[in-house]
Design a protein around this nucleic acid. Sequence first.
DNA 1: CGGGATGATTGAATCTGTTCAACCCGGGTG
DNA 2: CACCCGGGTTGAACAGATTCAATCATCCCG
Lengths: 336, 336
Amino acid sequence: MVGIKEVARAAGVSIGTVSNVLNRPEAVSEETRLRVQSVITSLGYVRSESARQLRAGSSRIMAVLVLDIRNPFFVDVASGAERAAREAGLGVMVCNSGQSAQDEADYLALFAEQRVRGVLLTPVDGSGRDLAALRAQGIAHILVDRAAASEAVCSVSVDDVAGGRLAARHLVSTGHRSIAYVGGPSGLDQVRDRRVGALTVLEEAGLGEDALVEVSAVGLDVAAGRDAGARLLGLASRPTAVFCANDLLALGVLQALFAAGVRVPEDIALVGYDDIEFAAAAAVPLTSVRQPAFAMGQQAAEMLIEETGPQSAAHRHRHVVLQPELVVRQSSMRAR
Amino acid sequence: MVGIKEVARAAGVSIGTVSNVLNRPEAVSEETRLRVQSVITSLGYVRSESARQLRAGSSRIMAVLVLDIRNPFFVDVASGAERAAREAGLGVMVCNSGQSAQDEADYLALFAEQRVRGVLLTPVDGSGRDLAALRAQGIAHILVDRAAASEAVCSVSVDDVAGGRLAARHLVSTGHRSIAYVGGPSGLDQVRDRRVGALTVLEEAGLGEDALVEVSAVGLDVAAGRDAGARLLGLASRPTAVFCANDLLALGVLQALFAAGVRVPEDIALVGYDDIEFAAAAAVPLTSVRQPAFAMGQQAAEMLIEETGPQSAAHRHRHVVLQPELVVRQSSMRAR
DNA sequence: CGGGATGATTGAATCTGTTCAACCCGGGTG
DNA sequence: CACCCGGGTTGAACAGATTCAATCATCCCG
């Protein structure tokens, strides 16, 4: 594979000049620049990013580590990040922790070896162990879809408590007095916060704490939703509405209810979270709490670029909190 | 940031020994190995992948370039590839061409600079220009979800003609005589082949060529499906069944039909393609042609690893063709 | 006890770019 | 005429690892 040396020789200049053509073209006379460039294309020279990075120090790759790549919500987040990264001339490496702390740690180790420009991540658990490691290694990182507790790191998140309130207020105002909450593993802040939001609304409405019936799910995917839905049907006193921690769970619950002949929304109202594209296409179009996923990824990436760019000195850590929005569809329409 | 030199000094050995501890631990005495390893952890040393790669020549990253990351089908493909890659100790870089030839070329240029181990890709168009560039640069690559025309490259694909036949045979055998085909931009082989398969079945059934009504779509996503569905409804002689080039289109068509009060499957039967998870959760559970997406990604990655691994000399290019499978659900059940 | 085999370790060369001090050269200035 | 200036170019140092021939220490065997 042809290197910068051969290009220099073929163009009759020094390697320093070739490097300048690549990196600071304005510092090279037009004549030389054109000559070198034509040699580059005719020889098919491709610069070695590893050599560049080794000397220059900085990488051109941003890593994105999401909780669950099969959830379209995170795909949107990653797409937003990708858009911003490409505009800044960076590549992105999207990886999936699948909610496994081990996988998360493995990927972060990989990123560290790669000396990536920075990492966008939604941490698997609240322990913050991996975050501490990132800080210790001096790897820039930004939390996505999770508000940071610390002032030493940026974050972009959506107000999950507000989202939980939106969902619950909607259900309470349409007459429901007993609501099931289908949450995933409670280690996740998102799951917890949405529940807290719903709970405050029920309390404000003067309903007891047991107005919110907890139905745990083993995960946050459709299969876990189906499972939770089946258990929901087995409850002694069945709630009249279900609020799910995300749309995948809601779709699963919907399938389980359908299979059992329970009608939505007539027998049970259903509200999801995220408003993924498929929520609108569901068996019964799903009421959902919309999150600005793409914007979240985009903004997080922009903050990372600012933090690691030339004027990084001016960077101040900050916590951006975006607002969710309720989208009402058929699944929670008031029964006639 | 601490380098291998500091580790060597602190452990009282040469840098060659430290390198051996990292790469060929069996060549180092247990005592030294343990000492070096403890120094590594206590100093927080992280090897620089760019330096490693520069010297060693080979990268530890496999690139995956998919047509549309918002399509869960491709997410599955990428997940399969990721699984295989991780088992081989490789990282993956998943990128999205979004069916843009420009983006595809940009990403391939990025991969070339990175000297990635190899590329898994579903090319945007049949021109093969980018493939020629890959070959010229000596970058190993494998086509995914697309049968290669050339013997000089591996491919893993699903028999799309057979898939089209499965769908059409199912519809014909349930009594349909006029079928609409909703395809995306016809530049895509997948779209073309599925249509060809359907067509042959109609011909074999003695139906004329105009038994297949073409409804073009601007893309292969839900929005394009909605649009195509609306146009379908405007047709003078409305077909009794619709076969869509993928599930996203089918979900969009379904929404359009719903909005217009057309019942599925009573008024129009609907068949999709890919059998993504959301097909089963649709308004009316979708009949679909299932593709082994995860397996396809996994196998492609394994072939790439073989091609670029230590015994690459033994590698022979081959074209693996997997078989699709029809999954019948409510959307195409025979009307009572 | 010398010679050879074995195993651990070392030192230097190398990979491919970036960077920067030094240099060259033509033109303007005192 | 000497000097300075600045744009263009060069050459060498350098980044952080891998790799391999050479060295050294041990131990075994004849």
